[in-house]
Design a protein around this nucleic acid. Structure first.
Lengths: 196, 196
DNA sequence: ACCTGAACACCGTTCAAGT
DNA sequence: ACCTGAACACCGTTCAAGT
């Protein structure tokens, strides 16, 4: 009858404002490098150290939240791909997009690597949509018989771990293409379709 | 006629001793966790901050040197495997050994991830034997036709990047096995042998 | 309830002084 | 030539005092 026990505290107006200001500044600063001191962001945002720290207890939490909206877009992009391409093609393009996105956002690859490992919990909510997107892509491919059955999202992200290791230099493109090919072939191996 | 320009400075006796002491202490300390402060190691080793810093300018450099000997053993193990097993079996077992080794040495996975990326140069020498071992394993497999031709060590380490992401918890074993299977299948795909 | 900002703890880095 | 260790710079974390 009553509301759920986990109350979604409405939060005070100034708290929300501070939070937004921090995120706005962080977005700017992170665009110029991942090694920005958190204290600098707090100062530029005009909030105290303590305030900053309560909103974002860890660096990963901040980075995840900063890119949350765009991460959500990437996740949603999976649906679009699934409706306009063959499942395996959709999966491949999605991986590529995820990789390129993570590469161009400073600190995002590290943050995801952190979150996708164990507990750490910080920013886990921001990452969840990506996992779900991967899940639906894998499901679609399994139904279509274009990948071997039984592959979990854990397996998947383990297979594409190299993504978080490629850094933007002169020859990142061919390396990424190679990795995508490699993973796709691996997922396809032993699939019902095209098998015999 | 004269000696090479890059003189291998013999180094003073006390310098060598200090270096050894640091490495000995670091080996102990790292066994109990990767988050040991470098200053603590310096103190326990009985050397000044500056001395420590000159010997190991970065954390990765220290970690790499600490495990250098054992890394060399892992690298050499490749030869043994190549002489006692089929090339593909040798490659697989070597990967597994490399993974398990890196997982159990605190901070090693992070250090390797750092070194195997770009420049950073620190500890690159310690890592080189591992790359060479991978090279010879890949060569042997290519000659035997058990993997598709043209795979570089860069490709290889990109494919197995997930190794550095698995952390020792309750279920690391099946995840590692899965990854090894996945990579091996991927390397095999399109190989001359067993192809038709 | 939330914010502030000084204070704290910590750690990597440097450097003038020693031997 | 190498070592020492105090001093420095920096950054994340806390907390008493404010509103």
């Amino acid at each position: 009858m009553a509301q759920s026990q986990k109350v979604e505290r409405p939060a005070r107006a100034d708290a929300l404002l501070n939070r937004e200001r921090i995120l706005a500044v962080a977005l700017e600063e992170l665009a110029q490098g991942a090694d920005v001191p958190l204290s600098a962001i707090a100062r530029k945002a005009g909030v105290g150290q303590g305030t900053f720290y309560r909103h974002f207890p860890t660096r990963e939490a901040l980075v995840m939240e900063v890119y949350r909206y765009e991460m959500l877009q990437v996740a949603k992009y999976a649906e679009h791909l699934l409706q306009t391409r063959a499942p395996d093609q959709a999966l491949r393009e999605w991986m590529t997009r995820l990789a390129e996105y993570a590469m161009n956002k400073a600190g995002l690859a590290n943050a995801i690597r952190e979150v996708s490992n164990v507990g750490s919990c910080a920013g886990k909510e921001s990452y969840a949509p990506v996992v779900n997107a991967a899940q639906s892509l894998l499901d679609a491919n399994e139904r279509a018989g274009t990948i071997r059955p039984g592959i979990t999202t854990d397996d998947f992200f383990l297979a594409i771990a190299g993504i978080w290791q490629i850094n933007v230099n002169d020859e990142w493109k061919p390396r990424l293409v190679w990795l995508m090919d490699f993973v796709m072939e691996g997922l396809r191996a032993g699939a019902p379709a095209r098998s015999a």
